[in-house]
Design a binder for these strands. Structure first.
Lengths: 216, 216
DNA sequence: GTCTATATACGGATAGAC
DNA sequence: GTCTATCCGTATATAGAC
């Protein structure tokens, strides 16, 4: 029963903060889920906020292995990867009966008055997400009209994800997410060279697109 | 001292829930700010959650007089009105040193597991917002390419606002909001007939646009 | 309708033995 | 490092006089 107590506590806190939020999660919740005792928890983490910081750092450290890599299995095209990432969120939404919320986004709103050390860790998570998406767009830079600001597009992709997830959770209806992603897709299309120009492109996607769910 | 005690309590709760969130606001906070006593509060509201419901209904009822109308003073063009609304949010962000968060968006994330009666009121607020923006786009329907889904565009406008506000608050930097709004502007442009086609339109706006802040 | 005083529960955190 | 027991503040809500 002593197999990495710290890890169990951390994992439990990660799950609970993601689903219930920080304030709504009591130390006792964490203790029960991780089958640990107060003495252990406070041995590893001086206080609840330190536990949160550790959770945020774990998120940041695992973002590639736990989010991007799984999402990108089977997708090589950088643009398709962006939408495969969106499809990943869609899956999480559906799997949770539309109760899914981006853990970082939720904490971002809840923790906006918290200490700087907390807020910086949340910012770092957003930045890591945006960086990865930015890198995707950069790999496809030659397909965009010259002068297109791909950094801003990556930020806008995060905006779309967060706004779409918020609405799908509130209305308990994935289609809100799908429609937001669809608009983003059309926007990206409009920013690219060549294409059929018209933004309301029907179904003339290149390939692999059918692997995406409705909205993607 | 008896001038509409209920109203004072409600108004105080509205402000506090917006800035501190629901859980972080104690009944005592509301009491002190409204200069009321427990007996009064519980006379009007059976419990804290009922107070929240009243707040959400007040938001919904006042959305036109308190949000849209002020934002639209001096703007007649329906498209410009959409971005004037965004400019309104920008003003709120700047005025609060980037601590502003959309009250409904924040509550939406915090209250996602709350009773149905609460969640429905939050949904109603989102719907009212989207409806108003939808009406703006409909008024300019003739300027869009036929077949453009203006309802989806209105939802996407909400997505952009919420996602942009979330990032500007997290990074404590309005420019995140500005850039998201800029992308939306370019997308709307791309969906319209005629225009210079190229989406990266520099500064060739029709008129009144200079009244908008940077990002709009 | 409004007041003062207070019941009752639960939260984060600590003490100190083992 | 882990345990049991517990302190102590704060929170929602109530009681009951006026």
């Amino acid at each position: 029963m002593s197999a990495d107590t710290r890890g169990r506590i951390l994992g439990s806190a990660m799950e609970l903060f993601a689903t219930k939020g920080y304030a709504q999660t009591s130390i006792d919740d964490v203790l029960r889920r991780s089958d640990a005792k107060p003495g252990s928890l406070y041995h590893f983490f001086p206080g609840k906020e330190d536990l949160l910081i550790a959770v945020l750092e774990a998120h940041r450290a695992g973002i590639d292995a736990l989010l991007f890599q799984p999402a990108w299995i089977g997708f090589d095209d950088p643009i398709e990867r962006v939408f495969a990432l969106m499809a990943r969120y869609r899956m999480l939404i559906v799997a949770s009966d539309c109760e899914y919320g981006c853990p970082i986004g939720s904490l971002a709103l809840e923790m906006h008055k918290a200490r700087k050390s907390v807020r910086e860790r949340i910012s770092a998570n957003f930045a890591a997400w945006t960086d990865a998406v930015h890198r995707c767009y950069l790999q496809a830079a030659d397909r965009f009209e010259s002068g297109t600001n791909l950094r801003e597009l990556a930020e806008f992709t995060l905006t779309t994800m967060e706004g779409g997830v918020m609405q799908s959770r509130t209305f308990r209806d994935v289609s809100y997410f799908d429609r937001s992603v669809k608009q983003l897709r059309q926007y990206v299309q409009a920013l690219m060279k060549t294409p059929s120009r018209r933004v309301a492109a029907p179904k003339k996607r290149v390939g692999g697109s059918k692997a995406h769910p409705p909205g993607a």
